[in-house]
Nucleic acid binder design. Structure first.
Lengths: 214, 214
DNA sequence: CTTAAGAAGATAGTGCCACTATCCAGTACT
DNA sequence: AGTACTGGATAGTGGCACTATCTTCTTAAG
């Protein structure tokens, strides 16, 4: 298959395919001559995965490359899952600073909240986990907005999150040891987020319609 | 308070404050002279909200403006919640087209899945809801990747999403009829997503560590 | 064999977004 | 009077995700 057919099959413009190659998201085709290369089904599949991660998962090109690199270096299943888990971008970035005193206070309180939550949930996570850091940031900002969660409230959310993660891992486990396991695992881990978010929004829409807050 | 103090209090550069004003995210200060205006606590609060929506919620400037407009036009609580629910951006955009035949098939199947889900959950949502459209897109793409959810699987996720939305609305309801209700409601509706996503990622990290998929 | 239609790779350009910097006339303290 | 600062207008910047162009080469058609 030549690049033009690969483009037709996937709906991705030729120029974009070249771009993805340059950025290391897509392996090169098998060169048959100085200006000719042959592409296969694996390239079609990879392009679909790239589009899914970027358009559905909302990943940047750089993040997509990191994730795909983790997929490609898959050796043990566990290692792959862990690598993917860390390669996925964290959806919260640092916010601006304000009054140093208040900030420090809010930061400390948020740290304590997170530590307390992890203890209550009996979660086993790295201290250096980017997710811990990001959650601390998020809780700190909510605190500055006077919209902080009370500990029990946070635990209620965490339990639901835990259940979702359980469904995710179950889905990943159900894949067994197929050769494309790593690829399917990344789909489950990376695209479960957007799907659950949409379901939540839909449920929110339903409940807003039904419920009155007066 | 002059603009420089507003900047110092919030950590937002003066140029950015002017930018937000231009974009209609922040009301103008009370002009005391041709080249002088007075800002108040409400501006500090509004800037914090803007930063929270953009950095935590991941909203674009345009989406933030839409949401804040909905907040400002709050008359009835219910109407406000509904307006916010629709003003929040949908996290999934359309993906590329490929083989027209397969696409049409996948699209039809995804539509059926969504309709089935809504019926099973007994959700009351608008047919034209952007969330329905986005979920259809997401399920279609997953189908094209051969990673589609079986109906029961989707229902399991939906039930958890429903529970999360329930917690959200409870939180919003607990705010009562405070004058800043609309502002607090937008925080709950818009920032619950990132928080639950982080909790899910944290739970995922925990379970990946504990569980082997072998 | 000639020729036109791609193909590969390198490089430069585009459009959008979220700021950020500069400039200007006007104001306020000292 | 001088300096620092202000609001408002306008232009510029840097990053990102492509997209277009150019050059050299290959291959299938006539």
């Amino acid at each position: 298959m030549k690049i033009s057919e690969l483009s037709r099959r996937t709906g991705v413009p030729v120029a974009s395919i070249k771009y993805f190659r340059r950025e290391g998201l897509l392996p090169a085709g098998r060169a048959t001559a100085a200006t000719l290369a042959e592409y296969g089904e694996e390239h079609v599949q990879r392009l679909r995965l790239i589009k899914a991660l970027t358009t559905l998962g909302g990943l940047s090109i750089a993040a997509t490359r990191d994730v795909l690199t983790a997929v490609d270096q898959a050796e043990t299943t566990d290692g792959t899952l862990r690598a993917i888990s860390y390669a996925l971008p964290v959806p919260v970035t640092a916010a601006s600073a304000g009054d140093p005193d208040r900030d420090a206070q809010a930061e400390a309180a948020a740290r304590a909240d997170v530590a307390d939550l992890i203890a209550r949930m009996d979660w086993e996570v790295a201290d250096s986990s980017p997710h811990v850091q990001a959650l601390t940031t998020a809780l700190r900002e909510l605190r500055r907005l006077h919209a902080d969660y009370r500990p029990e409230g946070l635990v209620a959310y965490a339990e639901l999150a835990h259940a979702i993660a359980g469904l995710d891992l179950e889905r990943a486990a159900a894949l067994g040891d197929s050769p494309a396991l790593a690829e399917q695992a990344v789909i489950v881990l990376a695209l479960s987020g957007p799907v659950i978010e949409l379901l939540r929004r839909l449920a929110q829409e339903d409940q807003v319609r039904r419920r009155s807050l007066g």
